[in-house]
Amino acid sequence: MLKIKNLFLKKDNFILGKISFEIEKNSYCVILGKTGSGKTMLLESIAGIQNPEGNLYFDGKDISNISPNKRDFGFVYQDFALFPNMSVEKNIKFSARYKKIEDEKNLFLDLIEFLQIKDILKRDIKYLSGGEKQRVAIARAIYSRPKLLLLDEPLSAVDPTFRNSIMKSLKEIVQRYNTTIIHVTHNFREASYLADKIAVMLDGQILQIGDAKDVLNSPSSIEVAKFLGFKNIFSTKILGFEQKNKFFSIDPNKIDFLKEKCLDDYCFECKIEKIMGITDHYKIFATVKDTQSFFAKIPKQIFMELKLNEGDKSYIFINKKDVVFI
């Protein structure tokens, strides 16, 4: 449905691209990346606000040179960009001034019901809370019947207590309004809840894109793994593999400590370097072969049974099924 081919954009000292990927119709794609990684610039390029090199195809048609007002793509900015010179209702109905909106009346009624903005329609936008602004901005974008809805960190300015209900609404939009969503965020929770597809973006490049579960559980590179919060990333040589430049990661919660060496799965002799007691668990830092520093989280009760002390010799045990190869 949306196909991006070799998209490239240079702005001041920042370079975006070359980016190529495809998004299926009626899917929810999340672009996950740190602040300053070029996510907004990518969305603006898709919307036609920026003028990148490369090609964009939508439903098989080359839209690279089509102006933003002819693309039928909705855009919601992080700070919502509601028009200050208009009331809530006028903001929502803005697109009707410039194009014919199919089933306009029913769509409006459905939107104000769905996004719970019925009571604030006549209000000046400067008197809205963050959550209200966000819902109005989404309503305004959907009211234009976009074929593709581009959301730029839509939840970052919303009170955390309302995030869950808003995420639920966002998820529903795809089917309810027959559209496709590209949502950019730096928040893994948002991504894992909402996305059918995730693209990881760092320094202007898409490093990995695929099915949400695959990306979150199987990072394709060390950069992606580190960004996704994977800990204990080491060369597979420790595990006895010969291949160079291959890495693995192990969740700190999946590491066990043994008093004696075990021959099953992976077991390495280690030295306990540091122990930090946290309310219900202990953080343990242990070195293997004096160089590789493992980080483990052990529940309080198990730690008490192990009776580990800093400087002790012990054995790290990793179950094969818990190893994530990168």
Binding site: I49, R71, F83, F94, Y98
Partner: peptide
């Protein structure tokens, strides 16, 4: 950004 959004909403 107001201008950008307005463009995506169909305004020339």
């Amino acid at each position: 950004k107001y201008e950008h959004v307005a463009q995506t909403l169909g305004a020339s």
